[in-house]
Design a protein around this nucleic acid. Structure first.
Length: 581
RNA sequence: GCCCCGGUAGCUCAGCUGGAUAGAGCAGCCGCCUCCUAAGCGGCAGGUCGGACGUUCGAAUCGUCUCCGGGGCACCA
């Protein structure tokens, strides 16, 4: 619909330019938008006002030239010039009625477009460290990332969804050591457990598994474990315990605990996400970057290009040359590569896989990281504009009025699993995706847990269920589901509620397009609320199953298309469309 | 100190790539089920769009400054 009007306008502009009626040096990117007021037609265009400045002529005069040059169209009823120079388009009833047959013909494809043109996109999201269960903060990234993947696919992109598994580094060592200390406790030792080790109960669970499988074979007395370690600085102390664990257990013993912990926690995350309806095409291991030499390769590349230098026994990357605030270490003085080094290798690897665009969804706390990753991409000779980093702000949890403190290390958090169990997947996902990602979110557990109608997801789903119910009534009354969706058959749809619904339905493709371009799935959620509202209003104002066969058929065709769009839209944000509620 | 995000109705948020009279849900008040699910519908009330200055035909939207709230500024991941 909108594209059609665009074509008409572009055609008119060309006509004017060619005839020399208006000297247009360059055509501005004008806007063609849905009118806010009904008195302003269906679409409004600001092109005349945009041209007025350069053409040095009154906008209304230019508007008249354009209107006169517009080709005739069966979709356009009339065109008016209004206000300071808006060109308002009024569409014909046929143009709207034809949407119904379009929707029913295209089915799940109605609303899809091809702005992506098959471009390959790698979308990475969640990527939480496997150091514990996913909590409600991760849930937001999961819901957002998954919805974005669906929207981009609907927009013609070829999307790969990936989870980067941080299965290397100090945090994982802390996990392994935490498990071992709990294991020693289970062996009967009285362990003074460090406050900065992981506190969660799941550590006990993994320790119990170790104890069941290994019995006392990994046992060492506490005196031996803590001997000579100074507890002045907690982090140094913890590092000391880690080193001691590796030393006492040897590669095989320590590796066994490390792998068991990683596998258990990762599997837990996998199950959580799967249960939440969030799927991935690939789980990418950070450790694999080390073992297959990718990290060394990336560092060698940077050295070769002269971006690394040695200082204080460490290797630094001069990211400041690419706009970062300060240079960053890639190889520590102890010889270990940093997390940043892995990430450089990872992103280089992503480019080498041949994607046209990379999208990373990170928590907002990582925003300081964007500059250095972009610096790395530039330094390696890649185009850093191809990487889009989307930062998801925190969800602050409330129980009623009270803020819920959260910390993974202390084990004090509400898990995604708990949330799903109490709120349900649909409500949780709709809630998450109803805020644009850069918006801070107050997540009130009391509100989300209550099955009240405060939650808009029920409102939208209820519209779908009601339409399904009408279908059931039709079947019971043996009225048959045969629908004639031709424009001729729909001419009887003359009620204002019906016109409103048709307008809403015609907007859907524009909403999907905008959601894809701007990476804003929340637009789908808001649109669905509008559409459901249009339907509920209609439902209350008119009967669908009426004696008059022509009207009954037409109304049925209309609500069938509403049902289709609700179902498609809900699917885009990963929410189910129930047949009954 | 520097950087990012936010400040719109009592509350939670849309609108922000400049457009014509700033929207929705919840909460409040008043109505609507002999009728396809009342998890619904209609109506009323509610606003210095944090503040100031600027850009322009036009600013909630863009720029500068400022106030308030959240987050980030590691040889951690």
């Amino acid at each position: 619909m909108k594209h059609h009007l665009h074509d008409l306008l572009d055609h008119a502009l060309k006509t004017i330019e060619n005839s020399g009626q208006l000297a247009v040096t360059e055509r501005p990117s004008y806007q063609l938008d849905r009118s806010r007021q009904k008195g302003h037609g269906d679409f409004a265009c600001n092109i005349a006002m945009m041209l007025a400045a350069t053409a040095k002529r009154p906008p209304r005069e230019i508007a008249q030239l354009i209107v006169d040059a517009l080709p005739v169209s069966g979709s356009v009823d009339k065109v008016e010039i209004a206000g300071p120079g808006f060109i308002n388009f009024y569409l014909t009833p046929q143009a709207y009625l034809s949407i119904v047959s379009t929707i029913l013909r295209q089915g799940d494809n109605y609303g899809c477009n091809n702005i992506g043109a098959g471009k390959k996109v790698l979308l990475e999201y969640v990527s939480a460290n496997p150091t514990g269960p996913l909590h409600v903060g991760h849930g937001r990234g999961a819901a957002y990332g998954d919805a974005l993947a669906r929207v981009l696919k609907a927009a013609g992109y070829e999307v790969d969804r990936e989870y980067y598994v941080n299965d290397a580094g100090r945090q994982m060592d802390i996990i392994a050591t935490s498990v071992w200390l709990r294991y020693l406790d289970l062996c009967g030792e009285s362990v003074k457990y460090p406050a900065n080790a992981y506190q969660g109960d799941y550590i006990w669970d993994i320790a119990a598994t170790v104890h069941r499988e290994k019995r006392g074979r990994l046992f060492h007395g506490v005196e031996e474990v803590f001997m000579g370690l100074s507890s002045n600085d907690p982090e140094t102390y913890l590092d000391g315990i880690i080193a001691r664990s590796k030393q006492l257990l040897g590669d095989s013993g320590y590796g066994m605990i490390f792998d068991l912990a990683t596998d258990t926690l990762l599997e837990n995350i996998r199950q959580d996400l799967k249960g939440f309806g969030v799927e991935y095409d690939r789980w990418f291991s950070e450790r694999s970057l080390t073992t297959n030499g990718a990290v060394d390769k990336a560092i060698a590349l940077l050295k070769e290009k002269g971006h690394l230098y040695e200082k204080d026994g460490a290797w630094w990357f001069n990211t400041t040359a690419f706009g970062d605030e300060k240079d960053r270490v890639v190889v520590r003085d102890n010889g270990n590569t940093t997390y940043f080094a892995s990430d450089i290798a990872y992103h280089l690897e992503k480019f080498e896989r041949g994607y046209d665009q990379l999208i990373d969804i990170w928590g907002a706390d990582h925003h300081g990281y964007v500059a250095r990753v972009k610096a790395a991409i530039q330094a390696m000779g890649q185009n850093d504009d191809a990487l889009d980093v989307l930062l998801v702000q925190f969800a602050v949890l409330y129980r009623g009025k009270e803020k819920v403190p959260m910390s993974t290390r202390s084990g004090e958090f509400v898990t995604l699993r708990e949330l799903r169990k109490e709120v349900g997947n649909d409500a949780a996902r709709f809630f998450y995706v109803s805020r644009k990602c850069e918006q801070h979110m107050d997540f009130d557990l009391e509100l989300a847990k209550s099955q009240s109608n405060d939650n808009p997801v029920y409102y939208v789903q209820y519209a779908h269920a009601r339409i399904m119910s009408v279908y059931r009534q039709m079947r019971d009354k043996k009225l048959g589901p045969k629908i004639d969706a031709s424009v001729a058959a729909l001419k009887v749809l003359t009620e204002s509620h019906e016109q409103d619904l048709l307008t809403l339905l015609s907007r859907f493709p524009e909403v999907v397009e905008q959601a894809a371009i701007n990476h804003e799935p929340h637009q789908i959620a808001y649109y669905l609320r509008d559409l459901a509202n249009g339907f509920h209003t209609y439902y209350n104002a008119h009967q669908f199953i009426v004696k008059d066969k022509a009207i009954r058929n037409a109304r049925l065709a209309l609500i069938a298309s509403v049902k289709q769009v609700i179902s498609t839209g809900l699917n885009l944000i990963g929410v189910s469309a129930p047949d009954s509620m």
